[in-house]
Amino acid sequence: MKTILYARVSTLDQTIGHQEAQARAAGFAIDDVVADEGLSGLRVPLAERPQGRRLFDMLRSGDTLVVRWVDRLGRNYADVTDAIREFMRRGVIVRTVINGLSFDGATTDPMQQAVRDALIAFMAATAQAQAEATKEAQRAGIERAKANAQESKYRGRKPGFSRPQFEAVRDMLNQGTGVGSVAAATGLSRQTVYRIRDNAAGAEAALAEWGM
């Protein structure tokens, strides 16, 4: 039985090494790391990614699949839920680094199955909603930047946070982490974290306007 970490990075701001380090710090004894780089989790299904296909071939009954969170498997609701259910049918245990959740097909109790499946569905839906909101904010930021350039308008004050910090704040807040803890972990002020929390789309647009 093996423990396999699947990592996916879609931007230069993310790293496979960071995801592996997080998993090991959480106590997972990783035997293999399978990773896809530069691929969208919204547009490219897991089974169509080069290493995603390999993952389906590698996993056997009794193995454990570790992911930072379900959004690493993908950001498409149907794809993520189908993939997790397929892994569970094969006898694979799916575990997340964030929140320490565990999904398997061992239970035969219908109520436990219903709760498990509802949680998987909620997490997959959240991943897709976050991706779509980010894309919309990026489009809005790009359009605003174009309009500002055409009209020679001042772009406004440069954001006091980087894109990695923005993504870290958003992810931690989505997982229920308190503002104070988020600020300490990212090196940002509480006021900045509040601004990102209260207007994530505006923060995303500001980063896009400044090419960040």
Rank of each mutant, 00 (worst) to 15 (best):
D198K: 02
W69R: 05
V94S: 01
F56Q: 11
Q130F: 03
R72N: 04
V182H: 04
G38P: 00
D57W: 08
A184C: 04
R75V: 04
A140R: 14
F122V: 02
D198I: 07
A114T: 14
R85M: 07
L188I: 04
I98V: 12
Q112P: 00
L73P: 09
A140Q: 15
D109Y: 01
G91C: 00
P50C: 01
K135S: 13
S152L: 12
M88P: 03
G105M: 03
Q175K: 11
Y154A: 15
P50I: 08
A124M: 05
K158R: 15
A118P: 09
I16W: 00
A129G: 07
R170V: 15
A200M: 09
Q14I: 03
A208W: 02
L119T: 07
Q130T: 13
V92T: 05
R68M: 04
A83I: 01
R60H: 12
G38C: 02
R85E: 07
M58T: 10
G105E: 08
R90N: 10
M172L: 14
Q22G: 03
E143R: 15
A149M: 12
A121Q: 11
E20D: 06
G156K: 09
G211N: 14
N174V: 00
F103T: 05
V34Y: 09
G52M: 07
L46T: 06
A185V: 01
Q191D: 12
F166V: 05
R157K: 15
A200R: 13
A147R: 14
V115R: 05
Q51L: 09
N76I: 03
E86I: 01
G17I: 06
Q112S: 10
V44H: 05
A147F: 12
D57M: 11
T186N: 08
T107A: 05
A121V: 06
A124E: 00
T186M: 00
A208R: 14
T107K: 02
A83Q: 01
L46D: 02
A23P: 01
A203N: 01
Q128T: 03
A114H: 10
A184I: 00
R144T: 14
D117P: 06
D109H: 11
S102Q: 13
D31A: 11
T108P: 02
F28P: 04
G105A: 10
A168F: 00
A131P: 02
R197N: 08
L65I: 10
N76R: 12
R139F: 09
E204V: 05
L42P: 04
W69K: 03
M111W: 10
P110W: 05
R163W: 07
D32Y: 09
T108V: 11
D82F: 03
A7H: 08
R60I: 04
R60Y: 00
K2C: 06
A35T: 04
V80L: 08
V115S: 07
P159Y: 07
E167K: 12
V80Y: 09
T81Y: 06
Q14C: 08
A125F: 07
V34R: 04
Q19I: 03
R60T: 08
G178M: 05
A208V: 13
G91K: 07
M212D: 13
A208I: 10
G52R: 05
G62V: 00
L207W: 04
G141S: 10
